[in-house]
Amino acid sequence: MNIRELNNNHSLNQDKNIRMLEIKDLHVSVEGQEILKGINLSVGAGELHALMGPNGSGKSTLAQVLAGRDIYQVTAGEVLFEGRDLLALTPEVRARKGLFLSFQYPVVISGVNNIYLLQAALNARRKERGEEALDAVDFLALVRNRLQAVQMDESFLYRPVNEGFSGGEKKRNEILQMLILEPSLAILDETDSGLDIDALKIVAEGINNFRTPQRSFLVITHYQRLLSYVEPDQVHVISEGRIVKTGGPELAHELEERGYGWLQGGQPGVTAKAAVGP
């Protein structure tokens, strides 16, 4: 079996008019300090959007809020995921309904084997879709197939989650989880940082093979590097809690050459090139 065959579309939403993810005027604070100051972002089914920005611009906060981290307070705005109110759902329900966050810093879970978590996570997702839990044989076949896709050794399954993993192994392990859980929306938070070029290519290939006309991606990155291998539909630049520029793939290259300086200070108008819409 190959990955594309397994990538059935489990999205509840076949209506082309309903966006995969719609963020409207989202304001978020932590400990009284506003970090996101009115984010607007819309990702259609099958689209891959890149969110770029300097350190401290609010990229990771947005990823964590979308996944449901409760240390952040949403003070205004709304988020729709396949048309439903995302913010009303607990983190686990978001996951089961097909939202996946690849962590910037994957967490070590001592004493819990990787394969145990994979199975528990997959079964939670399948139950939500009204599917039976996979039996041990089918589950192992699926996992082995996905391991190959990220070029991970089977021994990783029997090690505690992320314990003693190198930076690159942790990121590949996140992609492995994504490939097994088959989310409809994958948010990849700096999955490319800390990767050497070989690992980066593996991760990029994992993403590319996983793209379907229904599945969407929000790829958060500091660097343009990953976007040389993964072609975005749109690139957004976030600065000081606002999206200051939106463009096509060429925007990423421009950022690589010019840095973020020219976009900061909330003056998107000074750019030489006009924003390119979808």
Binding site: E92, A95, R96, L101, F103, P106, V107, L117
Partner: peptide
């Protein structure tokens, strides 16, 4: 860790 596991559907 608790949050990480919840984002995996637990």
């Amino acid at each position: 860790a608790l949050f990480y596991l919840r984002t995996r559907g637990l």
